[in-house]
Design a protein around this nucleic acid. Structure first.
Lengths: 280, 280
DNA sequence: TCAAAAGTGTTGTTCTTACACCCATGA
DNA sequence: TCATGGGTGTAAGAACAACACTTTTGA
């Protein structure tokens, strides 16, 4: 690829650049927002207390500063475009996303980060024109967050209660700042869809996991139960999805049960064939 | 959703905003780039001259201004963040993408525009930190482009020759400005992948089309021939992909052949089941 | 010893694929 | 009338879904 090589006309170009005033443009700010998704053991839905398979959560913060002080929002912040008093410039957008997230929670060693999209409608921030590059981060069970600069409070919030249409009663949405409700909805839909045709589900799990744990990720994200036996076979029949570690889980199930084999993520990024959720 | 509603603490918030200086941030520019894809009748690959089913093309321009003057680049330009002497602000990113593209070619009435992603690595533009929001636009056979402001030349360029790994010999890549080679590669991969599980292929076709024309879109984008009879059946078996217009094509094939039935795009956005390209 | 969970067998159904064949049209 | 492309029939094989069943573990 031809990434920012020296252009063919060097003389005029360097003369042009030296006379260039970067402040001549209308002010616009670029921020990163991170939709951090994880699966935590107990949600708010403990129907009978019997089986707690984990429910999906998103990391939210309460804004301590204007604008929209006191509202729940995604962790985010301005991209450092150039070196300055606050610190060195962010080399690229993923670096900025990890930097702002590390102010809210400890980052796991293994994580999946991808860009979701950029939101730049006029009027979405009352201060000025803001372009927010949203990212989605998937990680295994993360610890409780800590408050940071500009943040009163940070918490893992279950997807239920955010009105994402997973079949739960769409109760009492929290008030989300800016257009962060839409960004979270886009992230959740992206995650649900990518579970079908990529090996993304392993990003929610530690380095060694059982097929049942993998199935519980699918069930939590899709909000639907899957046939355990057929799921097991299908995962093992998909080349490169998982590979056997040769070890067994420490214990069987909580109320008895065979010890499950442990697998690690395989090399495949795309699943052939995909695990379709279409057929009810 | 809670899009930029009035925040709960109104008094302090408005006092905060009136004292806010938007120029306090480090300068960063936001641009839009458009990867416009279309399928044009004759490419550069006329192997035996017999059948010309159309080849995929991308719209490129030659930069008339610094930086990287003289290099081929995607049509693009700065987002108008606020109203100014050049014109009114772009309400949202898609508006900006259509505006910069309309300076290069006539926009069709029906088109598909979606955001690809934002590219913001340090050093990708020598002038300043630039964040480019790339878009992908699919449209039926578009006319020849016209040159515009800041542009010497604009042309439809076949994907082959850009080194996108479709099996053609990766010959003589054109020199593409900035990281536009990577952006085009990402767009092409996105298009190839979305043809599998969405009804996106119809965006390359006029409002009424034959199943064979639809198959030729798949063949052109995937660079592979498909079984005509089974493709036909599978399209009709996929709910909501196409719907019958009740009419027939004007003519049969160029060398004889039955007149094909005409279809229009159905309402479905996602295909169930998808048209997988995995199995060779 | 019993219930729970892991994992395998099996069978009927659906989907895919390849090939054959008929239909309609232009040269 | 003959070659070409549109469209349907059909049957073998692969994949899928549902259910039964064995194995292993915790209580």
């Amino acid at each position: 690829m031809t990434d920012a090589r020296t252009p063919p006309h060097d003389g005029p170009e360097s003369r042009f650049l030296s006379g260039y005033d970067p402040h001549a443009f209308a002010p616009a700010a670029v921020t990163v927002d991170v939709v951090a998704l994880t699966i935590r053991p107990e949600g708010d839905a403990g129907e009978d207390g019997a089986r707690r398979a984990g429910t999906p959560h998103v990391l939210l913060t309460r804004r301590a500063a204007h604008p929209q002080r006191g509202w729940w929002a995604l962790p985010g912040g301005f991209v450092r475009a150039e070196d300055g008093p606050d610190g060195p410039a962010d080399p690229d957008l993923p670096d900025a996303a990890l930097r702002v997230l590390s102010e809210k929670t400890r980052l796991p060693t293994e994580l999946h980060l991808e860009q979701l999209g950029t939101y730049g409608a006029r009027g979405r921030d009352p201060r000025m024109r803001v372009f927010s590059v949203a990212h989605m981060l998937l990680a295994p069970d993360l610890p409780d967050p800590h408050s940071g600069r500009d943040t009163e409070e940070a918490a893992w919030v279950p997807w239920s209660g955010l009105g994402l249409g997973l079949g739960e009663d769409t109760r009492a949405d929290r008030d989300l700042a800016f257009d962060h409700g839409r960004i979270i909805a886009d992230a959740v839909e992206r995650a649900r869809s990518k579970l079908e045709y990529t090996a993304l589900a392993t990003a929610f799990l530690p380095s060694a996991f059982t097929i049942t744990a993998l199935r519980e990720v699918y069930q939590a994200v899709w909000g639907r139960t899957l046939h355990a036996a057929n799921f097991h076979r299908k995962i093992l029949a998909t080349p490169g999805f998982v590979e056997d570690t040769g070890e067994l889980a420490e214990h069987g199930g909580p109320g008895g049960g065979r010890r499950a084999r442990l697998y690690r993520a395989g090399g495949a990024a795309l699943l052939h064939p995909p695990l379709l959720r279409s057929t009810q």
